[in-house]
Write a protein that binds this DNA or RNA. Structure first.
Length: 425
RNA sequence: GAGCCUGUAGCUCAAUGGCAGAGCGCCACACUGUGGAUGUGGAUGUUGUGGGUUCGAAACCCAUCAGGCUCCCCA
């Protein structure tokens, strides 16, 4: 259709039902973060492209960000992530902030990628970070926040788990195998791909990268050793703290978790749905020691993670964990008996609203059957009718839509009767 | 950026070159002062869009847009 303008590829339209889910997730991430005392913040949605170019590859910025020139000719971009903005904000007020700083945010981000299931060009992301304390116990707290969220939405440990590794531990293991520094990035990518490739092809790929057979064998030993964490003092303390925090059932050690190399320096972690169709990580994070110094601040260690709303929504849906959708926020519905009594109904609805209730009123006279059907669709809990009989006696008919019981009560006591019904549901 | 698959009623999908259909949902009525259940009836439509082949195209070809799968990437 020539004159029908489509939505921009990869953007999302939140109809009331999707909006309710987004707000549900927002409510749950807020509850998890606030339970641990984290403060909410946000950064700009538009940033100078240089903020990302400084740290990321040029190709990355050019290809995967929504970049454009503003009216003055400056290159700006819709933010693809929050961490650089956050680091700048922390660095700018480093001298006046109280540390440890515990901050969280939930907002929109844009990445110019190929839309697929679980990946759109516009998404919401939850970011949680702590600055100013470099300890395994602080890492454990971030994991506990993530676990609190999973628990909060009903994702039990058998449905979703967080897998933890430590970059320093892996580095020392790679040292022991005499893997040279310039090969670390390749090896890291190799590890990342292990779950995606067939065993044979993965071996071939490893040898192609220039690993000796002995190094490959050693690497496979490491990646298969799920007791490796016992060698790491950091991880030993981490798991001890997790136990005290009551979330150890959610967290498992996994030497296969690498999470790229960009700025993680210690603990790294990713959460996965244990038996789902979405292979993507549902959240991920880790410790970064150098980020603040990189943006011009004094050295300050941080630990944090991020979670996207798109994958989370799919996971919740596939696990039957979506909250019931209530179309109308008004639990009380007032019918219009006929044109001559419309004002009567409007006035009564207004009385109820002044009493503190959310009230939905049919906007015009219609068959009561039609109006009740509408009330049902809106999942209202109480319907009130003012017909000629009721009005003559200064009474109203209050119907409990859950059980179908209706009683005619004095107009003055209606508010109380309705509140009682709502409280009983 | 590359390869492959898909696009038909509001939704899920049939129809494989010959009259565009079903289920669910929707609307009306049974029930002129009351929803969910049931029954009866009714309307679903530029077959994503544009072009081409053909007597004839939802189907075949080309282009384009969107969605999905994979590679790439994943800050």
């Amino acid at each position: 259709m020539a004159n029908k303008i489509q939505s921009v590829k990869g953007t999302r339209e939140f109809y009331p039902e999707q909006m309710a889910l987004r707000n549900y997730i927002y409510g749950k991430v807020r509850a998890a973060a606030q339970a641990f005392g984290y403060q909410e913040y946000d950064g700009p949605f538009i940033e100078a492209i240089d903020l990302y170019a400084a740290k990321s590859g040029e190709e990355l910025v050019k290809k995967q960000s929504f970049t454009f020139q503003d009216r003055s000719g400056d290159f700006v971009t819709l933010r693809p992530e929050l961490t650089p903005s956050l680091a700048r904000m922390i660095a700018a007020k480093q001298g006046e902030l109280t540390f440890p700083a515990r901050w969280w945010s939930f907002g929109p981000f844009w990445r110019y990628e190929q839309p697929q299931k679980g990946r759109s060009r516009e998404f919401f992301q939850w970011n949680v970070d702590m600055f100013g304390v470099d300890s395994p116990e602080a890492d454990a707290e971030l994991l506990a926040v993530a676990a609190a969220f999973l628990r909060g939405v009903g994702l039990t440990p058998d449905k979703a788990s967080i897998f933890v590794n430590n970059r320093r531990l892996m580095d020392s293991e790679f040292d022991a195998l005499n893997i040279p520094a310039e090969k670390r990035l390749d090896v890291s990518n190799l590890v990342d791909r292990r779950s995606k490739m067939e065993v044979k092809k993965w071996d071939e790929y490893a040898l192609e990268l220039g690993l000796m057979q002995a190094q490959l064998d050693g690497l496979k030993d490491i990646l298969g050793n799920f007791d490796l964490w016992k060698k790491s003092d950091e991880l030993t303390r981490l798991f001890s703290a997790l136990e005290a925090l009551g979330v150890s059932e959610y967290v498992k050690f996994d030497p296969n978790i690498m999470r790229g190399l960009l700025y993680y320096t210690g603990t790294v972690f990713e959460a996965f749905e244990t038996s789902g169709s979405v292979k993507r990580a549902i959240l991920g994070g880790g410790r970064y020691d150098n980020l603040l110094a990189d943006v011009g601040g004094q050295p300050l260690s941080g630990v944090g993670f991020a979670m996207g709303d798109v994958v989370m929504g799919i996971v919740l849906q596939e696990n039957g964990l979506l909250p019931e959708f209530i179309p109308s926020p008004a639990p009380v519905f007032v019918t219009i008996f006929d044109a001559s009594l419309q004002r009567e109904s409007f006035a009564f609805a207004s009385e109820l609203r002044r009493g503190g209730l959310n009230v939905l009123c049919y906007p015009e006279p219609a068959k009561l059957q039609k109006q009740f059907k509408f009330a049902d669709k809106m999942k209202a809990r109480v319907a009130v009718t003012l017909g000629p009989d009721e009005v003559a006696q200064n009474r109203v008919a209050v119907k409990n839509l859950a059980n179908g019981e209706q009683s005619v009560v004095a107009r003055e006591s209606a508010l109380e009767v309705i509140q009682k019904i709502l409280a009983s549901l």
